[in-house]
């Protein structure tokens, strides 16, 4: 089964060049049933990544471009009066899909942002008093521009917390960029991508990820990491229990992708920057800016028991 994941990884790697780690993290996030936040400057392949992931997994895909005048109805859908049978008919919004790419989520107003984030948490939306389930699996990939760019509404901590992981794509290295420049148009490549997984495969993989064994020794390590952030003066606030759970889920998914039946500390370390980077705030000036560095530092500081 997990060979299929390798196939997905290989296929996406063929589109996004030189970003295997980020692709694997994105997949792990999906396997752990979490949502993904990609934070980077425009043009490094955020959309392409989301698109190729959806295609390779055989999932339906919608993209919502967030703008400052976006309204919740633009995301969720709207009921329109139908003259013929004199009823209101619901026209589902772009959110009713398996993979949603919420592009530049921090350009929208908090109101629109929260519409998306409610849906992420509940896996359902309530419009006109009627609750509608979202398709399963439901996976949000949100991208955001670094908060120092103009015209952004930074996501508050409580909403950042909804994302299992936050990753950065970064510039490609010289070889990968060269390849990119020589090669085909990415959009053409995307159209050629076929699904590597069948319908229930993903659900089964997600279930399998939950079954990966976690030993007491590993829980010790996870708790040591969490406690370190709570005790040390370097962090403005410690990691929440939800963050600890997220860490554990992501590590399980990662272990599955590494074809292990149990989680080892390396799995935790692999997902650590992605999982805790956006949940930590430094006591030093600047706050969240260097969340990734802080996660790296945290990893080096906590000994493995």
């Amino acid at each position: 089964m997990s060979e299929r994941i390798d196939k997905v990884v290989a296929q996406v790697c063929g589109v996004i060049l030189g970003k295997e780690l980020q692709i694997r993290l994105a997949l792990a996030c999906l396997l752990a049933r979490g949502h993904l936040l990609i934070e980077d400057i425009p043009g490094v392949g955020k959309t392409t990544l989301a698109h190729s992931l959806a295609a390779s997994l055989g999932l339906s895909f919608q993209r919502i471009q967030f703008t400052s005048d976006l309204l919740p109805a633009d995301i969720l859908g709207v009921s329109i009066y139908n003259r013929e049978n004199a009823t209101f008919q619901f026209h589902p919004g772009p959110i009713f899909t398996q993979v949603v790419l919420a592009d530049e989520v921090n350009r929208a107003t908090p109101k629109a942002q929260s519409a998306l984030l409610e849906a992420m948490e509940e896996h359902q939306v309530t419009i006109d008093g009627e609750t509608r389930r979202l398709p399963a699996p439901f996976f949000v990939i949100a991208t955001q521009n670094p908060s120092y760019q103009v015209g952004t509404f930074p996501l508050p901590e409580s909403q950042l917390d909804r994302f299992l992981m936050r990753i950065r794509l970064g510039y490609p290295n010289v070889e990968a960029e060269r390849e990119l420049l020589k090669g085909q148009d990415r959009r053409d490549l995307l159209e050629q991508l076929g699904a590597c997984l069948r319908g229930e495969d993903l659900a089964e993989l997600q279930h399998e990820a939950q079954q990966v064994h976690v030993s007491p020794a590993l829980l010790d390590y996870v708790q040591a990491v969490v406690n370190h952030t709570r005790a040390s003066a370097e962090y403005a606030n410690g990691l929440s229990p939800r963050a600890a759970l997220a860490l554990l889920h992501a590590a399980r998914a990662w272990a599955l992708m590494e074809k292990r039946k149990h989680v080892v500390p390396e799995d935790v370390q692999a997902v650590l920057p992605g999982v805790v980077g956006h949940r930590l705030m430094s006591t030093a000036e600047g706050g969240r800016v260097n969340g990734f560095d802080m996660a790296e530092q945290l990893m080096k500081q906590v000994p493995i028991p």
Partner: peptide, 9 residues
């Protein structure tokens, strides 16, 4: 071994 180094690494 570095204190924060996992066994496999």
């Amino acid at each position: 071994r570095d204190a924060a180094e996992g066994p496999l690494t």
